[in-house]
Design a protein around this nucleic acid. Structure first.
Lengths: 205, 205
DNA sequence: GCGTATATACCGACTAGTCGGTATGTAGTA
DNA sequence: TACTACATACCGACTAGTCGGTATATACGC
């Protein structure tokens, strides 16, 4: 009856994973990124992870749950980072730069997760989808507030609405996994800084 | 043997569609956008289009071909528009604005196609994938050249590499179908102009 | 105008295989 | 004995694509 997973379902989410869970998730991420969620058979996941189907269904209730777990790991890190950055209370420009560099580097560090996520998010079901949207919204809103505050204090120009600035910035980041290559000429940090330069130039008074 | 499709395959692509083909493609776009390519059964497509499976396979060789046709329709329009805009030989800033407004409005006008496309492009096979990449590359390169020329002539600042500017701009556009709502407060044209304002502000000398 | 030949457009039952998930078994531990 | 942590065999639903066939249109000799 997939006790571990059932328990997780009943009392919310755990935050540690057993080595077995880790292997299964890792295989799922790789394959989902390569062939898509629907394009990957559960049997392929267990083969790749060198475990059996019984083991997978012992730890997870369904294939869908794997998708949700992948997403949770990514958004968890990024949300925590964002909160930490905002709490520092730096000037708006420095905060924006820190946010962008962070989100670019964390995304680059977990490219397959990001690929899967931005491609398959719409396949989450009901409760999971609600949780997903809430997290995204929270992230988006925190970021927007940083920019709106900067505009209000006169540190930033108010030419483009803060909402649009965030949509643009997040759009770039969400698209990153499509074209960013870790072996390319630019490091994630350089790229994050270039994106920050760009955004800050547009906000320049 | 799917004569129409076979012929298309042999001598390149046709550019007109019979009403029957139109209905099938329309159904496919709707369903792929809603449930994904792999998540949509061919039977669902024919049910939705109110045709039979025989008819579908009479006009198309495979489910994959539907995906390719969807993509062709979108890129065809956008590439043609881009070429027309560049040919006008306007100042760089105006050209950039025209490009961005055009790509935003054409994307908005074909949201489901765009959704399908940016989500499922990686499922194209070999030859189709090559054609896809070539088209994208051509578009990307034309756009980059406009910006690079503007930077060379001093009309634009050279702070951020033209390549990055294009990646950012296209990233925004590719992400559009995820969050743009036609019934929302902003029209596609307004949004296109806001994005242009943003990009041009970042390029301001 | 009429018969025949041939091509096109479509129909829908069918097949071979794949899918996510489950039921049952067993080895190890407490 | 009871429980966890798996392993294995299997199930029924569903899949993309095929195939034998039909209905209609067009072409052409007479």
């Amino acid at each position: 009856m997939a006790r571990a997973a059932a328990t997780r379902g009943e009392r919310g989410e755990r935050n540690t994973r057993s080595p077995m869970e880790e292997r299964i998730i890792a295989a799922a991420v790789t394959l989902f990124a390569e062939r898509g969620f629907d394009g990957t058979a559960v049997q392929q996941i267990v083969d790749h992870a060198e475990v059996t189907k019984g083991a997978l269904y012992h730890y997870f209730d369904s294939k869908d749950e794997l998708l949700y777990e992948i997403y949770r790991a990514l958004i968890g890190v990024q949300s925590a980072d964002l909160d930490a950055i905002v709490e520092r209370g730096l000037p708006a420009a420095e905060t924006v730069r820190a946010i962008l560099v962070d989100v670019v580097t964390t995304t680059a560090k977990r490219l397959p997760e990001a690929v899967v996520f931005f491609r398959e998010a719409h396949k989450l079901h009901d409760k999971q989808m609600v949780a997903y949207r809430a997290d995204r919204r929270r992230y988006h809103e925190s970021f927007r507030k940083v920019i709106a505050d900067g505009q209000a204090s006169g540190e930033f120009a108010g030419t483009v609405p803060a909402e649009t600035v965030v949509q643009i910035a997040m759009g770039v980041v969400n698209q990153l996994p499509v074209w960013f290559r870790p072996e390319g000429r630019k490091t994630a940090e350089q790229l994050g800084n270039e994106i920050a330069d760009f955004v800050l130039a547009a906000l320049r008074v």
